[in-house]
């Protein structure tokens, strides 16, 4: 899934929040790629055990983030694929007076599955 999200380079700091819906065990890696490059600027790992430690700030100055790519790859397993089938991986981009959501959703199959979200910052 590839999406584009506009930010205000002169506004306040931008927060990226990752959350999960569904009775799943999920681990993810958040990468921030440099624009027009194959260099990774930031790497963060997380999971869905604790929902309060899954937000990250875009580096300052904000204008430098234009063209950069947020890459969230998640691996997950459904804990009850017979009864609780749906999953959702949500990446929210917050800046005061602006919220943008990018959602990848589907059905769990009981095996290890992956979700891939790319967001180009404009």
């Amino acid at each position: 899934m590839v999406e584009k999200v506009k930010i205000n380079p002169n506004g306040e700091r931008v927060k990226i929040e990752i959350s999960f819906t569904g009775l799943i065990v999920a681990s993810y890696e958040y990468l921030l790629w440099e624009a027009q490059s194959n260099t990774v600027l930031e790497t963060h790992q997380g999971n869905n055990q604790n929902p309060h430690d899954d937000d990250y700030l875009l580096p300052m100055p904000l204008a430098n983030n234009i063209g950069r790519i947020i890459d969230v790859r998640t691996r997950f397993v459904g804990l009850d694929p017979d009864d609780l089938k749906k999953y959702e991986v949500k990446v929210e981009i917050f800046q005061p007076n602006s919220i943008r959501q990018v959602i990848d959703s589907g059905i769990v199959n009981g095996k290890s599955q992956f979700s891939q979200i790319y967001i180009t910052i404009e």
Partner: peptide, 15 residues
């Protein structure tokens, strides 16, 4: 936690 570790290892390897 055991599953989480395996998932983390896999996603890191893929990246």
């Amino acid at each position: 936690k055991e599953l989480q570790k395996l998932m983390q290892l896999e996603v890191k390897t893929e990246n």
